[in-house]
Write a protein that binds this DNA or RNA. Structure first.
Lengths: 216, 216
DNA sequence: TAGATTGTTAATCGATTAACAATC
DNA sequence: TAGATTGTTAATCGATTAACAATC
């Protein structure tokens, strides 16, 4: 419909984004270790990648290197954080506060890079109305108004599979454009909503396949 | 070294394995719904895949279909379960019984397909020595002997990142060949050990990248 | 048999890698 | 300057898709 500028966004491969995330973590470590510059070759070999791939991944977004030198660690780190949107704070809604939900809530890696769980939704009357570490647990019906008030941008679905689609529908209705789903269900969401699935069964079954292969 | 039979194992793409896992779940559902046969076309459109891809994925392992008919749901399900190693029970060691560990332990999807967490390791003296749902929590130093005694095949790493490599080393030393890692660290393991990483940061940052794109 | 759908080959597409001129 | 390493083009590789003969 709306003709987007065709020069920007030249279809970045998903795998490139995932690698940028990996590079960023590595650069954070290097910076901590006091390393000033790093070459694509050095970066690549830490992850068994090809140096050309590293350069190409970065080249989608600009020219960040210096020929003959490599990349300045803190400069590149800052660029990647900006590209990945890690230079700001995202307001996250966690839906479902069972075991998985509370594990995610307590997982410190979250806040770490600017993801702030600012509200939790759970219809269990034992939980709704309480507060954990200053974060309110509310019934799901309050999602829409909270989404506006708190400017929620990311929703995490940590409810049983049977409830997941209904939750996703509500998140979408509340205007949330990015969903991280832990329920082992295929969720249907509109095309402009970005859905990321974490599927434990697939990971385990991949292992199981490998074990079955070698023991055959 | 050992010349493996070159006709078997024609390098199955990882994505094929992951899709087999998805097909299997779908077939379980179809069987429950009383559907007797399904075509590659029907299977494909549920996941926005191409029917040729479905057929090709299956063709790596044999001829399971009937021309003019499609695939018999329960027959194909059984074949895929066998291929994925879901026709047996795998003994799983869960290392780390914090929030994430207990979420994983309580996650019913596990037992569901033959993954049995038969022992938990945690060095916290508050936890070690106790039992949850009949499953013992032991200190990590007992890993090696338990691995033998219980025939452990899969290890789940759910400890803080700083401890993860040490845990992985012990799992490897205990002869475990398949590791599912939840710690946000690159683990180094020997080539014959299959390592599957679940990295929440990457998933979140992929979402963050998308949001940053659209809001730019 | 006619219709449907498989298994498979060949074509296409996209991602990875090698190679190298540009340049710090 | 000489040496190193980038950014980028061209070659390679592998995965997806289209097409169709085989066949239920």
């Amino acid at each position: 419909m709306t003709p987007r500028p065709s020069f920007k966004i030249p279809k970045i491969p998903e795998m490139t984004i995932r690698r940028l995330s990996v590079y960023t973590r590595c650069l954070l470590q290097l910076e901590e270790d006091g390393v000033k510059t790093v070459s694509s070759e050095e970066l690549a070999e830490r992850f068994n990648l090809n140096s050309a791939q590293v350069r190409k991944d970065l080249a989608y977004f600009g020219e960040f290197g210096v020929r003959g030198i490599g990349y300045y660690v803190s400069g590149l780190k800052a660029e990647l954080q900006r590209i990945l949107g890690l230079d700001r704070e995202w307001q996250v809604a966690l839906v479902g506060f069972g075991n998985l939900g509370s594990a995610l809530f307590n997982y410190k890696g979250f806040a770490h890079q600017g993801f702030r769980i600012s509200v939790i939704f759970d219809d269990d009357p034992q939980k709704a109305g309480r507060t954990v570490d200053g974060v309110p647990i509310l019934p799901l019906r309050e999602l829409a108004q909270e989404a506006k008030g708190r400017n929620l941008q990311i929703g995490i679905v940590a409810v049983p599979p049977a409830a997941a689609q209904a939750v996703a529908d509500r998140l979408v209705a509340a205007g949330i454009k990015a969903i991280l789903n832990f329920a082992p269900t295929r969720l249907k969401v509109p095309k402009d909503v970005r859905l990321q699935n974490v599927d434990l069964s697939i990971e385990l079954e991949t292992l199981s396949f490998y074990l079955a292969q070698v023991s055959r």
